[in-house]
Design a protein around this nucleic acid. Structure first.
Length: 283
DNA sequence: GCTTGCGCCTGAATGC
DNA sequence: TGCATTCAGGCGCAAG
């Protein structure tokens, strides 16, 4: 699942392999991949043909590449990949958008089995493209303000995991790293945010930064080849996961069996020993 | 304005 | 064996 470390790995790959190159043609192979494009696939294709990709930026799980006054904005969803490779290689059935370049170099393919990802062409504003104006800074940005985040957390009337997944509060965190950060901070996922004290919030933010940073250094986390870098290689952070996907296995810290609960139609993994359930739980 | 829950989608895994 | 159902997840939107 592409979260911040995976998207940043992809951004670096794009910077290395496609920036400064002129697009020859763009082919949208599945209309759902450009569902946020107001006038659809033809508009997306014609807006990018002949343009040069200037820069690759990221906020949270979104990334965008400038093309003059415009930018191509991308979200990988759950299963999206941006892959560069030899243009002659066969087209896999899950390729949704195909970019070819004027030079002899590799092409770029947006592959997405579950089609939750998308791309669109937007105006390249001074700060953020319009469609992601509501996305809060991620923990690695200079604009990230831990004091403001702590205040907003305490103003919320919700559970701490739901808050971590809310991209308008802090961006880049998905299901995997939320569970891992909560485990590192020894906090239960259903802890009401308004009951978190200063040291607990500091511990949580430190854990978030730590887990995202370590995952980035490892090239991300992969499950079933759902996420790979632009060269199709998997990250190896999966080996470092303490609780995510480890139901019934011993907690690496205290040995208690990791527990799986359901919430928001997804799984939550936690250690009942290190992360005791609060008397008043909220989710 | 804030919180909560649903629908989107595909393929693997599971159940009958 | 074959068909039906369940599950995984992030996001945007609508309802409360």
């Amino acid at each position: 699942m592409p979260e911040l470390p995976e998207v940043e790995t992809v951004r670096r790959g794009l910077e290395r392999h496609v920036l400064g190159r002129s697009i020859e043609a763009v082919h949208v192979l599945h209309p759902r991949a450009v569902r946020r494009q107001p006038a659809g696939a033809v508009e997306f294709e014609t807006a990018l043909a002949g343009r040069t990709l200037d820069s690759a930026r990221r906020r949270g799980k979104y990334l965008w590449m400038s093309v003059g006054e415009d930018a191509v904005l991308a979200h990988l969803g759950m299963s999206g990949q941006l892959l560069v490779g030899e243009p002659q290689r066969p087209l896999s059935p899950h390729v949704r958008i195909w970019f070819s370049f004027k030079d002899e170099g590799p092409d770029l393919r947006f592959t997405d089995q579950r089609t939750f990802g998308h791309m669109c062409v937007v105006r390249d504003g001074a700060e953020l493209p319009d469609p992601i104006a509501h996305i809060a800074p991620d923990p690695f940005e200079s604009a990230f303000d831990p004091v403001l985040l702590a205040r907003r957390l305490r103003q919320r009337r919700t559970g701490v995991k739901r808050a971590l997944l809310d991209q308008s509060l802090v961006s880049g965190i998905g299901n995997i790293y939320a569970d891992e950060a909560l485990w590192r901070a020894r906090l239960h996922w259903a802890r009401p945010t308004e009951t978190l004290n200063g040291p607990e919030i500091s511990r949580l933010l430190a854990a978030v930064r730590e887990v995202l940073g370590e995952a980035l250094a490892a090239g991300g986390t992969s499950f079933d080849d759902m996420y790979v870098n632009v060269n199709g290689e998997s990250g190896y952070f999966e080996r470092s996961l303490a609780v995510y996907g480890r139901e019934g296995l011993p907690c690496p810290r205290c040995g208690t069996q990791v527990r799986r609960d359901s919430f928001m139609n997804r799984s939550v993994y936690s250690c009942p020993g290190c992360q005791p359930r609060p008397r008043r739980a909220r989710w």
